[in-house]
């Protein structure tokens, strides 16, 4: 076998720009923008109401903009954890089968580009759209927060919230890859949308329960030794971490709440000499979430690769 000629990325820029423009000008985008703005307004309102009462008690007041909830409104972090996967799925569920349905796939692939460029261009365009939306929301919240509370964000707070944004993008990237995968596997966009949402629901609602059920089976507690209990707790956590939403929740927690020092069970011996309630420096928090971050990116790459493999073998005839 000789190497195939030419670059796999020729045409990538062209596909990316076209898809990006499509995403931004589509009706879908209008709806998502409205949803995002509404969310940002609601959470900022709730946060400001609460924050006004606790000014002076908290060093990281600016970060509280993202994490404070006030009944009946959830915090922005909770909103985002819920909306970002849906947003990502909405951006990607008809990426390939939409072309198939419109009968443009054969025509595009008969141009001198590889399939790689088409799939990767679409993924990058979805990711860029997501990044743009997230950045807009972040700016909206920051701006409104400063405006209404008079708080000035410290450098560390800005860095932490931007890292949170990056984690959110990585999380969205996972769901975008899932949606892209199903858009390759299923010929109908409706089916692929349902399948992607089904996977998301499975991880969000059921996986925690399943992990709770599986842990005692894998690491049973026979005699009630502390080691056994600890092992079971660790097994459950390891299982739960197979779900991207667990990884994302942990990353969010450690990035936006500097006083969080560990993600998982902590033994009393490890607490010795620790000053509880003191915040970690940024570098230590980043170190703490590094595995979660890597896990999210890996999950995105995994699903993209699956989509890629299936797409390369796909018959393009109707």
């Amino acid at each position: 076998m000789t190497r195939r000629e030419g670059s796999a990325f020729s045409g990538l820029g062209v596909v990316f720009l076209k898809e990006f423009a499509d995403q931004l000008s589509g009706t879908r985008m209008r709806l998502l923008e409205a949803l995002i703005v509404l969310t940002a307004m609601a959470t900022i309102y709730a946060a400001i109401q609460t924050i006004k009462n606790v000014v002076g008690e908290d060093v990281f007041l600016f970060l509280r903009l993202f994490t404070t909830a006030k009944e009946p409104l959830p915090s922005f972090v909770a909103f985002a954890g819920f909306l970002v996967p849906l947003l990502a799925i909405a951006l990607g569920f008809d990426a390939v089968n939409g072309e198939f349905q419109r009968r443009t796939l054969g025509r595009v692939l008969s141009q001198p580009i590889y399939r790689d460029a088409l799939l990767f261009g679409k993924y990058l365009a979805g990711l860029a759209t997501l990044a743009l939306v997230l950045l807009a929301v972040w700016l909206l919240i920051t701006g409104l927060g400063i405006l209404f509370t008079g708080l000035a964000a410290s450098g560390e707070e800005v860095a932490r919230s931007l890292l949170y944004l990056a984690a959110t993008l990585a999380y969205g990237g996972v769901w975008l890859a899932v949606a892209l995968f199903f858009s390759v596997v299923f010929k109908s966009p409706t089916t692929s949308a349902l399948a992607a949402i089904g996977v998301w629901l499975f991880f969000t609602v059921f996986w925690g329960m399943i992990a709770g059920l599986l842990a005692p089976v894998i690491s049973p507690v026979h005699y009630g030794f502390p080691e056994e209990v600890l092992r079971q707790a660790q097994t459950e956590l390891a299982l739960a971490r197979l779900a991207p939403n667990t990884l994302y929740a942990e990353a969010t927690l450690a990035l936006l709440q500097p006083e969080v020092r560990a993600l998982g069970p902590v033994l009393p011996a490890q607490l010795e000499g620790m000053v509880l309630g003191t915040p970690l420096p940024l570098s230590q928090s980043v170190l703490l979430v590094w595995p979660q971050f890597a896990g999210l990116i890996a999950a995105g790459v995994l699903f993209f690769t699956l989509a890629y493999v299936v797409f390369q073998r796909m018959e393009i005839r109707a």
Binding site: E5, R103, G106, R107, S110, P112, Y114, A318
Partner: peptide
């Protein structure tokens, strides 16, 4: 494939835009 596709035009049976 790229060299071939650069010089060959293809109109599928149901062309879509």
């Amino acid at each position: 494939p790229l060299k071939v596709k650069r010089r060959v035009g293809y109109l599928p049976d149901t062309v879509g835009f």
